[in-house]
Design a protein around this nucleic acid. Structure first.
Lengths: 190, 190
DNA sequence: GCTGCTGGCTAACAGCGTTAGCTGGATTGG
DNA sequence: CCAATCCAGCTAACGCTGTTAGCCAGCAGC
């Protein structure tokens, strides 16, 4: 699993091949099947490793701050393994490491006073946002694919499509602010 | 392109093969290359078709309502082509149809009074959220993959992981509320 | 009526995930 | 202490993938 994640980090997700992974391990491809049922399991293992690598900073008691720390830790882990993000994003979460993340988040929401159902919904929204933004960030970095539009047809879009890394940080900050403000409003309404 | 999207809708993204697509068109696989440089172009075409299919309901003047209509129209198009969502999500947007969507959204944000830079950021957040949630919804539907956790280790997560379609609608509603409330707060601050 | 283009075809290649079956060295049991 | 067992590697091979090369029928225009 470790070797697989390293390979993905180094060469990208498409380069992860039974044969290439085997080569990294100084072994032939079919030998891998003595340790793993199929490639799916390797992809699951990669997800597991990334989730396990999420570290959430210890911060104060205010839930806004804690939510920020949570989302931020999640995001950092994703960006540390950019090439693995498309794998994570298209795979249902059902592993040990991801469950732990879910658990602590639900506990946080419960602490603030949300019922279990609402907590789960809020968490799904938060996770979708973090993953969605990471995905967009990864997608447009290898989109040196000359994506400039015709300024006559799209006067607004043509000038503003591209995002720098700093932009992405700012966008994530905005997203977090929106999430916390939205949650605050919901909790006040309840 | 049309045939490719139909095939993906019917049999899933993994089933889209040069040979399978050719068979649907009563043709042999290599003939496709007379019309298309490679498979990538077909995937781009699929994205283009889905984006072109987005219809945004005509609603009142209030921007909250209009944002909802926008996100909702986007989401409906994605859910109409569930199997295509992983393709869309892992592909940078640079096509005609997607540009049009970007353009109208930026115009809306400008109308409300945001500067171009902020508008672009807000839009990125909105799109990431819609895509991220659609992705999660698609992912957990084919996750009949028995993903129940050990209740001792994860008391909260174990009971609440699964989402029904109605749940997902509710979650999307929550997400939209959070986005609008967050944006309102930002616009008030500015 | 010949020329050339267009869009199909067959054959083939390298690389993919995966299976079957063999083999040598370590580990265990009597 | 030798024999039996198991384990983890190996080679060979299958059917599938995207893609290229090269051929050929039919239609267009001069």
């Amino acid at each position: 699993m470790r070797a697989a994640l390293d390979l993905v980090d180094r060469d990208g997700g498409a380069a992860l091949t039974m044969r290439s992974l085997a080569k990294d391990l100084d072994v032939e491809a079919p030998s891998l099947y003595k340790h793993v049922p199929n490639k799916e399991a390797i992809l699951d293992g990669i997800c597991e490793l990334v989730y396990a690598e999420v570290v959430i900073d210890e911060v104060g008691e205010e839930w806004e701050e804690r939510l920020r720390a949570y989302a931020d830790g999640f995001r950092r882990a994703l960006l540390r393994h950019r090439n693995a993000v498309p794998i994570l994003a298209t795979r249902a979460v059902a592993t040990e490491g991801s469950m732990l993340l879910v658990e602590v988040a639900l506990a946080e929401f419960a602490r603030v006073g949300f019922d279990a159902e609402t907590a789960r919904r809020l968490l799904n929204v938060v996770v979708a946002t973090v993953l969605g933004m990471a995905l967009a960030e990864i997608a447009d970095q290898d989109s040196a694919r000359t994506n400039f539009a015709d300024p006559d047809k799209f006067p607004l879009a043509s000038v503003t499509v591209v995002s720098t890394p700093a932009d992405r940080d700012a966008e994530f900050d905005i997203a977090l602010t929106m999430l916390t403000e939205g949650i605050r409003r919901l909790s006040e309404a309840a």
